[in-house]
């Protein structure tokens, strides 16, 4: 690293480029509309956005798809399963009737189970992301603005939560909580399992958003528009949620859109380990878990859910990145 004048001069170039930047002029566009225009211009973001929308619509419309497709996710086609419990036909039984083939042994339709699995997965991921984001916003904004001992306590809790190993904690908590409410032979209702999962995600997931929001608020709270509100007699609620919050939407949206794919994989992982959703509820993690035993004999069973979950997570991640570029054009490139 040279510290000659060259270096000091480079610093000056950036400083000098700023006043040259054009004045936006009277174009009548809000910051949100400008970001939207930038997002529109980003091909990757738009393509992944449409894929995302497609998956979400498919998941939401699962009963409708079932109606059109004509097969329920629980229907078993034992007549199409061979004696060695593998589906008849090529590629795990792909046919005009069963688009993605059939499950070995039980002979359930993979396509419709994926559509319903999408529904489960997205429901859990989006609920968890909403909950963690909401929790993160409130705690982050309060910690950042008020500072002092409140900030110290919240920050300590954040550090504490970040230090806990999520997976071990989840493995431990799931059976404990279940045992607290249900006996060993009771049928555990699906909503309860899903609820506990969302709760687990929320318990661990809010820290990221809270940290992000806290940092942003600390840099915003000294701005003069906040002082102007205080000087006019504004209360805490007005300052936090009317003045500060609108300036936080960009990072919050980005962290939300990047949290969803995280929870999709997280949910699949927990279900894979058997502590999330269980059969017969259609779910990615459960399917992949079961398909592993057939990886040699019926690879299609592994490939279809694998590709769907891969595409889903990739689309969400790419869109999240595009959103970040659009909302904060200075962050990259």
């Amino acid at each position: 690293m040279s510290l000659s004048q060259i270096e000091t001069e480079t610093a000056g170039v950036d400083a000098a480029a700023a006043p040259v930047a054009p004045q936006p002029g009277m174009v009548g566009r809000s910051p949100g509309r400008l970001a939207w225009a930038r997002l529109r211009a980003n091909r990757t973001a738009m393509v992944s956005g449409w894929i995302m929308v497609f998956f979400v619509v498919l998941g939401l419309a699962a009963p409708l798809v079932e109606l059109v497709y004509g097969i329920s996710p629980f229907e078993q086609f034992q007549d199409k399963i061979a004696n060695n419990s593998l589906p008849l036909g090529y590629l795990g039984g792909v046919s005009g009737e069963h688009w993605f083939g059939l499950e070995p042994q039980l002979g359930r339709d993979i396509f419709i189970r994926l559509v319903y699995g999408l529904r489960t997965s997205l429901f859990i991921a989006v609920s968890a992301a909403l909950l963690t984001t909401g929790l993160g916003i409130v705690l982050g904004i309060v910690a950042g603005y008020l500072g002092g001992w409140i900030d110290a306590v919240i920050s300590w809790v954040i550090d504490f939560a970040l230090a806990l190993p999520f997976l071990i904690f989840a493995l431990a908590i799931m059976p404990t909580v279940t045992a607290r409410f249900y006996g060993p032979r009771d049928e555990i209702p699906v909503p309860f399992r899903i609820g506990v999962m969302i709760f687990l995600f929320a318990l661990f997931g809010w820290t990221g958003t809270a940290r992000l929001v806290r940092g942003q608020v600390i840099s915003l709270r000294e701005r003069e528009f906040v002082e102007a509100a205080r000087a006019s007699g504004a209360g805490l609620f007005h300052i936090l949620f009317r003045q500060l919050l609108p300036n936080l939407w960009a990072p919050i949206l980005v962290s939300f859109s990047l949290a969803v794919p995280g929870y999709i994989t997280g949910e699949a992982a927990l279900s894979f380990l058997g502590i999330g959703v269980v059969d017969p509820t259609p779910d990615f993690g459960v399917m992949i878990n079961k398909s592993l035993s057939y990886a040699q004999t019926d690879p299609a069973y592994l490939i279809f859910p694998g590709v769907v979950i891969f595409l889903l997570v990739l689309a969400f991640n790419l869109f999240g990145d595009g959103l970040r570029d659009a909302l904060d054009p200075k962050s990259s490139r």
């Binding site: 510290l3 000659s4 004048q5 060259i6 270096e7 000091t8 001069e9 610093a11 000056g12 400083a15």
Partner: peptide, 21 residues
């Protein structure tokens, strides 16, 4: 140009704190 800068022509900026390492 780099050989010239600092030797034949030098610059003083408004904010010396950001111009010094």
């Amino acid at each position: 140009m780099r050989k010239l800068r600092g030797r034949d022509v030098a610059m003083i900026f408004q904010d010396p704190l950001s111009a010094l390492h």
